[in-house]
Amino acid sequence: MADNEDSKMDKITEKLRSDNSSSSSSSDSEDEKMSPSETLKSKVYRIFGREKPVHKVLGGGKPADVFLWRNKKVSAGVLGGVTAIWVLFDLLEYHLLTLICHGLILALAVLFLWSNASTFINKSPPRIPEVDIPEEPVREFASALRVEINQALVFLRKIASGRDIKTFLGVIAGLWILSIIGSCCNFLTLVYIVFVLQFTVPMLYEKYEDQVDSFAEKAMHEIKKQYAVFDAKVLSKIPRGPLKDKKRA
């Protein structure tokens, strides 16, 4: 009996060992399968701390498809239309009010003549659709615009408080660069340049994101090094405002 019990115990222990070894080997194999991609993703530097794909960063859906040239015909059509508008208003110096008036004159003249000449050409006049702007989209647009304006005001107030010198200098540098660009071209050309950049930079970045992120990592490392030197020599000597607002009595 004792021998039988010992043999049974030996079989149970062997089974437990085999289960543990199999589970450990399976976990090791899972780690081997998962770790290379996960560790690679965690170690790869992405510009601006990006964790999502470029398509998701742009909001996803059809707008992101247009900016990333998923449908080349639609993207080329939108870019061509914007280019035509820029050429019409900037290069040819055609005015918006003049264009609207000429377009309305042409449309009204065609509809008026067609409606009166329908009895002679035996064709029914074109049906003019009723245009009614719904109230809900206008409210949603106004609400979203209000939120964005409030966020911008909060950001400007934070900068003006004098507590974050790094952000303050970054905003000043950005506004200075924008003023230089604005002195070289008018507002319409600036909007067109931004629009063209939206159609080119995301697409090129998605295509060469590894090379761009590698270069950006080196550039950010050098910028941080230079900023540390500038902070030690200049910014640390500038008196800063109080960290907390004084409580009102």
Rank of each mutant, 00 (worst) to 15 (best):
S236P: 00
D3G: 05
G103N: 13
E135A: 14
L58G: 02
Q226M: 01
A232F: 01
D28H: 04
L108D: 09
K207R: 14
L235I: 15
G59C: 01
L58D: 03
D28V: 02
Y227S: 02
I128S: 05
R248L: 00
N4L: 09
V78W: 04
R70L: 06
L104M: 10
L113N: 08
I180S: 11
A228H: 00
K123M: 12
S35R: 15
W176G: 13
W114S: 13
F199L: 13
Y208R: 04
K224F: 00
F187A: 12
W69I: 05
L243V: 08
A173C: 06
S25E: 10
L156S: 06
I149T: 10
E222M: 13
P63F: 11
T98A: 12
V229Y: 00
K56I: 10
K233I: 09
V78K: 10
P129C: 00
N20I: 11
E93G: 03
A84N: 06
M220C: 07
I149P: 00
G61S: 08
L190M: 10
G80Y: 07
K43M: 04
N4Q: 13
G49S: 14
A142S: 09
Y227R: 09
I133Y: 04
L97G: 04
K41T: 13
L188F: 10
S29G: 05
T200W: 09
S161N: 07
C101D: 05
A142P: 01
S75C: 03
I223C: 03
R157N: 04
E93S: 06
S42I: 01
C101L: 09
N4G: 02
I128E: 08
M1W: 13
L178P: 07
E136Q: 11
V196I: 15
A2T: 11
K43V: 03
K224G: 08
F141A: 12
S118G: 02
G49Y: 05
E140S: 10
I85D: 01
F230S: 00
F89T: 15
K233A: 04
L113E: 12
L88W: 08
